[in-house]
């Protein structure tokens, strides 16, 4: 039995002498991950409409949606919606990619070497132009999101003046403060949030 074991050891030693080592290359070379690997999630500037659905499904809260605060004035009020993904909190489940409404807004890339010394750097941001309600001044959603909805609805989008105007006016400007007067039927042509739209349409006339 002992001789048998010796033979086996010698065979193993000889094989190791003439074969490539099991250990990986030094200095380090990056092993490309397999196709379909769920790595570092990245927003796609062209595909993302900043609707915020990825932030809603994210189980670990790694994707955050920062909206400008209602009532903020000046430069802040005109700031867009910022979508942030934090790699230090992400656990790479891929639910964001799966639930993306456009299907190409956020992608799981093949990045896996994400170690950092400074934790605050572990984030990616994109910003999208925000649309505000001309009635109450509250943020409605992003212009890209409204345009995407318009594209999906086709001619049915004409029923909603917000969607029509977003198509007609490439660059939107909003009043610095919300309208002082109560809404009436004439306001229906404005860009409104769902609450204000309801008020306008039930104002009678």
């Amino acid at each position: 039995m002992k001789r048998l074991m010796k033979m086996r050891d010698i065979r193993e030693a000889l094989r190791s002498l003439f074969s490539t080592p099991v250990t990986t290359d030094f200095p380090k070379t990056r092993r490309p991950p397999e196709a379909g690997f769920r790595g570092k999630p990245l927003f796609d500037e062209a595909g993302c409409v900043a609707c915020g659905s990825c932030g809603r499904v994210c189980p670990s809260g790694a994707i955050r949606v920062h909206d400008p605060k209602p009532g903020a004035s000046g430069r802040k009020a005109r700031a867009g919606r910022r979508m942030e993904v934090r790699y230090d909190a992400c656990h790479f489940c891929g639910l964001c990619e799966e639930n993306c409404i456009t299907g190409r807004g956020i992608r799981m890339t093949d990045g896996f070497d994400l170690a950092l010394i400074d934790r605050t750097l572990a984030s990616e941001l994109i910003e999208k132009e925000m649309v505000f309600c001309e009635g109450c001044g509250r943020g409605v959603t992003t212009a890209a999101h409204l345009r995407w909805i318009r594209g999906r609805l086709g001619e049915m989008a004409s029923a909603n003046p917000s969607l029509t105007r977003i198509q007609q006016e490439p660059r939107l400007t909003f009043p610095a403060s919300p309208a002082a007067k109560p809404p009436d039927r004439g306001d229906d042509v404005k860009i409104l949030c769902p609450d204000c739209r309801r008020k306008v349409r039930s104002a009678g006339g």
Binding site: E34, F37, F92, G94, M108
Partner: peptide, 19 residues
């Protein structure tokens, strides 16, 4: 990793089927 997209945590089985 090839089948599920991750080496250890497959995230494959969900209610209703597989992802």
């Amino acid at each position: 990793e090839r089948i599920s997209g991750n080496r250890l945590i497959p995230s494959l089985i969900v209610p209703g089927g597989v992802r």
